[in-house]
Design a protein around this nucleic acid. Structure first.
Lengths: 350, 350
DNA sequence: CTGTTAGCGCCTTCAG
DNA sequence: CTGAAGGCGCTAACAG
């Protein structure tokens, strides 16, 4: 017997009535079967099958229990971009693994950049949040805090009361910058956006303190330090800001840089995707890598190995898992600094 | 004033009391602000701020309204694999776009292959489901049906009462097979698993009717038809089953095939990932593509363009969006056949 | 514009 | 092992 799709919702009470037991016995049948006699249990299950009852209503259960067994993940401005960025995808896979282990669902929260993002976050039926790298002024952070549920930010910013999982971006940038800038005299940085408006610019010695994305800010600080330690003043370093983390955008920007009167002889990027675009631009411009222009990426993705890119290795997957553990684990917000290393390959001078 | 993290939950009733209004006025303040006077509204919001009230409780609201504003996505056996498969990721991106537009969240349901998958599906607080390509005997399908909520299956199987979004895999396989098998005498098929056990095998003229994954079954049927139309009996066609959709696995399997006494002179794969592995194996074995061995992929991913692969183009992204629209749209289950085309490149004989 | 009533479906508590 | 009461937090429906 199949009830039609539009049929009225079946409740536990109806099942109990048909089975000839109390509602509680029916409830126990689903939640603590061992406390119900074999006979009652089978009567309940038979009644449920007959009525097409698919189990306790999740919303009612969540309300009663005070927990949803679901973890919320806030993925930044355009949700669909999240899935286009392979590193973000690794991060999600790490979260997914932990959720699967603990029987949790994982709700991806669509952030559009509009004002109603906040409503969607506060309105999400989740027990905790993970927030993917965002800006200091992102209103979603305040919304997450306001829910008082456990939350962990990945990358940054650090927010009082929320956990933080990140690498030391400044140190990593400094280390990879040192490799890239060795022997260079005209270094350039290919940067992620500096503000939520995602404006593309090309400047020299870009202001750093007012950059609102902490991950980007820290990397710029690291590159600055690397430049200065290589004897190059920050004001002489070209900073080209790409509006998206994307090979095509990086390729266009790098082409512009390479065609200028004083073309860079070292370009440090903030992702392997960007660096791949830079390599293409260099090839198109007829510049030898690494001798005429050194290039570095970030993340040590499969692409980096394939292209022989010097890059910063980190495991976004493990960081995702760490975020999930922290968010689901306990009440105490955990901060964790993740490991990283520089992987030297042929795109930088030996 | 900041309430401590562990503090008791604040309710709308408390906010209303502090504001000196009825609970309904407080509720309207959040749900239909226009029906509340300016004065009441600001009193309520002030009280909420003072108490640290972050808005109506999502579970309670869902229970009351009978809708969660969340769409569930069942992604197949190992959740983390879902994020490793770039085509699955495109599909998710398509869903995500629609969810974002309509203010819906998107809950990814962790399927582990264990018995408790069913509980997780029936226990998910979602208004509808999308099920990524699975097998005829997947118990999750029955669980989804049992919830009586709108659901759409991508790829297959077709289930009475559920929607279906798919391309005509059989026709597409036949079309791309015709290109691959032209001029070939010893064709081979690199297949996805034939059953949920994911066993690797190499046979000739594999049985097709008992393959439990409908997408795989239909593609095999199409390849069979293409072979027969090229004058080759199916019993002479080698079918190599890979346990995972993965370049490395495909490379190993293809290497085995190419090293055999009667090496194939055409290999049709079920994904571009697999086909990329085949190309590597061919190069390692010193076989010229396409003259000594023709190769085709599936999906027309970026990889296919890069490697010059003949392949089947389809938009998983659009199909994801179509699934989401159908699942959120109305009560009626929609079936939709999506477009595809064969893209000819250098990996097949002209 | 505001308030009252009456549950949504379930499960914790406490008695049998 | 089973059951009766009560309420989780909220909002439709209907008065005023």
């Amino acid at each position: 017997m199949e009830s039609p799709v539009g049929s009225k919702r079946v409740t536990l009470a109806q099942v109990a009535e048909l089975a000839g037991v109390s509602v509680m016995t029916a409830s126990y049948t689903y939640n603590q079967p061992s406390r119900v006699s074999e006979r009652s249990r089978s009567k309940v299950l038979a009644a449920a099958a007959q009525l097409g009852y698919a189990g306790p209503d999740p919303s009612a259960r969540s309300l009663r229990r005070g927990s949803t067994r679901t973890l919320g993940v806030v993925m930044g401005e355009h949700l669909s971009y999240a899935f286009e960025d392979p590193e973000a995808v690794s991060f999600l896979a790490g979260i997914a693994g932990v959720c699967a282990d603990r029987g949790y669902g994982m709700t991806i929260l669509p952030i559009t950049g509009a004002a109603d993002d906040v409503l969607r976050v506060t309105g999400a039926a989740v027990d905790g949040f993970i927030v993917w790298t965002t800006s200091d002024d992102d209103p979603v952070l305040a919304a997450v805090r306001a829910t008082k549920r456990p939350a962990v930010v990945h990358g940054g910013p650090a927010v009082p009361g929320l956990g933080l999982v990140s690498i030391d971006n400044r140190a990593a940038a400094c280390a990879v910058g040192a490799v890239a800038f060795a022997g260079a005299t005209r270094p350039a940085v290919l940067s992620f956006p500096l503000s939520r408006e995602r404006i593309s610019t090309i400047t020299r010695g870009s202001g750093i303190a007012d950059v609102l994305f902490p991950v980007t800010r820290e990397r710029l600080e690291g590159y600055r330090q690397a430049a200065e330690e290589a004897g190059i003043a920050w004001r002489d370093v070209v900073v080209a800001v790409c509006s998206r983390n994307d090979a095509a955008d990086a390729e266009r920007t790098a082409a512009t840089l390479l065609a200028s009167a004083e073309p860079p002889d070292a370009i440090v990027a903030m992702s392997d995707q960007q660096a791949a675009g830079v390599l293409r631009a260099a090839r198109a411009a007829g510049r030898a890598v690494p001798h005429e222009v050194a290039v570095t990426g970030w993340d040590d993705s499969a692409l980096a190995a394939q292209l022989g890119l010097t890059t910063v290795a980190q495991s976004l997957r493990e960081q995702g898992a760490a975020c999930a553990q922290a968010a689901l684990g306990g009440r105490t917000p955990v901060s964790r600094t993740a490991p990283w290393s520089v992987v030297r390959r042929g795109s930088t001078r030996p």
